[in-house]
């Protein structure tokens, strides 16, 4: 009979810190917005990348490359770029030069003003763009 330890081999010791709260998909913030739009990690893709990075390095500042992220996620570099951009919606993610990124994973308090602004701005832009298409008024998109 397989034991739990065999089924679920322990991960290496990494500093998880506040990862539980950071990654919690059931937090108020995740529930407040549609799953692909918000959350402390910038939506579905950002959350997955945050999970992988925390598993590998813990909660920390990470220097990585698009190629490395692509390897970790099993995607191509274009998709990896999108994952990094998604994570960057809610966390400081800096593209230092071609293909090099610095990611600083941090806890965002539920109701964080900056995060809410990011989400609300995105929603506003989508509504404006939709209205523009409906009315044919290009000014409505601005």
């Amino acid at each position: 009979m397989l034991t739990d330890s065999l089924l679920f081999p322990p991960l290496p010791t990494v500093e998880l810190g506040g990862a539980r709260e950071f990654l919690d998909p059931a937090s108020d913030l995740w529930g407040k917005y549609p799953p692909y739009e918000g959350g402390p990690c910038g939506g579905h893709r950002g959350w997955r990348l945050a999970m992988v990075l925390v598993a590998m390095y813990g909660m920390s500042t990470i220097e990585t490359t698009t190629d490395e992220v692509a390897g970790l996620l099993g995607t191509n570099t274009s998709q990896a770029n999108n994952y990094l951009l998604a994570l960057g919606k809610a966390n400081p993610v800096v593209k230092t030069s071609r293909g090099e990124w610095t990611v600083h994973l941090q806890n965002n308090d539920v109701g964080d003003t900056r995060m809410e602004h990011t989400v609300m701005n995105a929603a506003h832009q989508r509504r404006a763009a939709w209205k523009s298409r409906l009315t044919g008024n290009k000014d409505a998109a601005t």
Partner: peptide, 25 residues
Amino acid sequence: LKIALGASLDSSIETSAIRLTLGLH
């Protein structure tokens, strides 16, 4: 959390399944 983190390293496991497991905990 560690189980979910371990699962996240396998790209063949979809994100929604991991979110469901962790979110229900």
